[in-house]
Design a binder for these strands. Structure first.
Lengths: 142, 142
DNA sequence: AAATGTTGTTTGAGTGTCAAGATGTTTGTT
DNA sequence: AACAAACATCTTGACACTCAAACAACATTT
């Protein structure tokens, strides 16, 4: 038996609101770095993955490899990313951050941590723990 | 005194994960409607606002009015949106959904409700209420 | 009435996106 | 070994999104 509609509707609205605010926050932060949002997204995923192939990066980002080719080209030109040939599969490259890319990634990661601290600052330890537990359940559900 | 880094880091990671999943869910749903993501976003905002001027719509969406002009053009061509002259300010239009646009909006809204029901299905009533309360605090904080 | 500000449109340039086709590589079958 | 099929990436062409700057029409202020 599902919860009454009003409860679900309220939660839905709150999730959308949270999403919108995170989105515009991210947009503002990224803009100040001089990169576009998709470019920063690429940096973030590569940064979290150490190194990966075009195909896998494309899949994680939900774009085609054709889209990625030119994106990686530009990030490479800016010295943030580098392609190195795959050791055993000569069709593939491994994409990884350069030092400059690492710095940018770290800085952006710090921004995320600061935001998280800020928005949870009004929560008690207990509430934080509850929130984290619920998030884990939800994420596992999706 | 801030929470220990590990807690904040965990929450930050969970928020990012939630955001990413909502993002890819939305992308999939929108794709099946034949519209682009920014187009559907426009429909959603207009749908929630009844009617509003280009300038206000642009501000809510975080884009310039120049960007909006062509977007509204295309949505108008598809019969989803309509411009009507502002009664007192002859520089402005009021943007509103057509019936067809309303239908699309309602359908998409239903998708959101279904997703919300799904992802909160493993939560008890109490957990849902806690979650909602925490979201309210966080959103108020941003 | 004139100056200034605002609203929406247009234009030009760059980026993001995909589908389809091309190239070189690997894997599987014969 | 030779061939075919599958694969990873890149290229190309077409279109959408985005902005900044310039513009026209209208509103507000002085």
């Amino acid at each position: 038996m599902p919860a009454p509609m009003t409860e679900t509707a309220k939660l839905s609205h709150q999730l959308i609101e949270l999403y919108e605010r995170l989105s515009s926050w991210e947009q503002d932060v990224v803009k100040s770095s001089g990169l576009s949002t998709p470019q920063m997204h690429t940096i973030e995923i590569v940064g979290h993955s150490d190194s990966l192939r075009m195909k896998d990066l494309a899949k994680k980002m939900g774009v085609t490899t054709g889209t990625l080719t030119v994106m990686v080209d530009r990030l490479e030109q800016q010295g943030l990313l580098k392609r190195t040939p795959h050791e055993t599969d000569r069709r593939s490259y491994l994409i990884a951050l350069t030092e400059k890319g690492q710095e940018l990634f770290s800085e952006h990661h710090q921004y995320h941590l600061h935001l998280t601290e800020e928005i949870t600052s009004t929560l008690s330890r207990e509430e934080q723990a509850q929130f984290s537990a619920v998030l884990e359940k939800i994420i596992g559900q999706m």
